[in-house]
Write a protein that binds this DNA or RNA. Structure first.
Lengths: 130, 130, 130, 130
DNA sequence: GTGGTCTAGACCACA
DNA sequence: GTGGTCTAGACCACT
């Protein structure tokens, strides 16, 4: 899986997993019917407790994004109609709205804030290419 | 005060206060020597516990951003050396870096992400003018 | 076979099979000596694993409700002593007792609960006639 | 709290809690804004692990039926508009539909099934009065 | 006082 | 092999 766990991040680990899986599904990186990595595998890969992964998967199942197949594992849910998985823009907007309010409180002009975001985007995309 | 408290936000309330005051000072919206609203007033305005406000103020005082004046209340500290308030860009960057990674996971192009942020900035600035 | 498998139901599939066969025998819908559908046929019909069907049949055989005939398949056991198949009322009562407690917790009057059950019974019986 | 935990019941304990709280809210036994018993209290009362209770509460919170008040405890959610809390009839119907199918499989006439349910209802209500 | 998170380990059930 | 459940205990954060 191409996502990261930051133990230093104050947001709980299970929440980091939930958020990222949600985004990867919205972005079609994870496609419908695809098998998710097993609880134990993911736990070992990131050196965390299997129950933590399990909790994240359970929440995603309750949300309708994952489906449990008895004895098989978890799959990305097939009936991804309209509920649950939202448009990518809708998942990104809250972060950007918060960042917009912060820019205003910091007295930064919209232009300066945009330039800064552009730099961050460029950096993030460069990490992947090489 | 032009800041907001979101009780549903998982980040603790006292932290929401600290972060926003820090930004307002960095952005010179709150200027040196200016009186802060009283603990009681702020608590009542946002329907939160006065002890929570008090804790936030104490942290800001320990950080050197606020000063406690007996009989008067809290003021924005006058001797803002360089250690207390940082550059506005440095305070905004972490949020934008996170938003950049999210955009990538969502499969959004940098251009689309920028456009979305531009819209958020415009909306945030319009709220204040009328 | 007129029974249904609900993969989303938390009760294990083999248990769903066992319970329903038990009822169909108690209700004389399946009569003594009658052939049961083959493991393979039943599995294919409901899109479940043959091993799951096999496990259910084995449990029913251990219970004395089914008999394994070499080269033929499973039959409804002929010597239905009193220990295997119980009275229909006894098999239905647990569900109704649970439903009665639920009605009480929901604040529904016994009369309202009865009316609702009447409607469900009518609907269930109509499904079969046409 | 007037609900029961049955350790022998195959349905997991946290699920028993969730289901019953859901019903008690739908039946207005628990009213909006009311405080729920604390995790530790409920755990001790029923001799189960606090984490099990916590898990149930978390699910109910995700469902929108409970609200967490930091440092205070859990309350029955106030904005109980339409989602989440359903009509009592809607929560009872699934059990009765299952019981109706069972009655049919058992070869019981609708009249006999109704009589049996009536008896169960009477018994359940008598337990409370004395 | 409140709930939340994580860990470690044991046991069960399903396929 | 898969996930689920429960326990016990430790530590943290908020009010």
């Amino acid at each position: 899986m191409n996502f990261t766990i930051a133990p230093s991040d104050p947001t709980p680990i299970y929440r980091q997993i939930v958020d990222q899986v949600r985004r990867l599904i919205a972005g079609r990186v994870l496609v419908q019917g695809q098998e998710m990595p097993s609880v134990r595998a993911l736990a070992q890969e990131h050196a965390i407790n299997p129950m933590t992964v399990s909790k994240a998967y359970s929440l995603l199942e309750a949300e309708g994004l994952l489906e449990r197949r008895r004895g098989i594992g978890m799959l990305v849910a097939i009936n991804q109609t309209r509920h649950g998985s939202a448009e990518p823009e809708d998942l990104l907007r809250p972060s950007l709205q918060a960042a917009a309010q912060q820019a205003k409180q910091l007295g930064l002009s919209p232009r300066a804030a945009l330039r800064l975001y552009e730099a961050c985007l460029k950096q993030t995309h460069q990490e992947e290419t090489p």
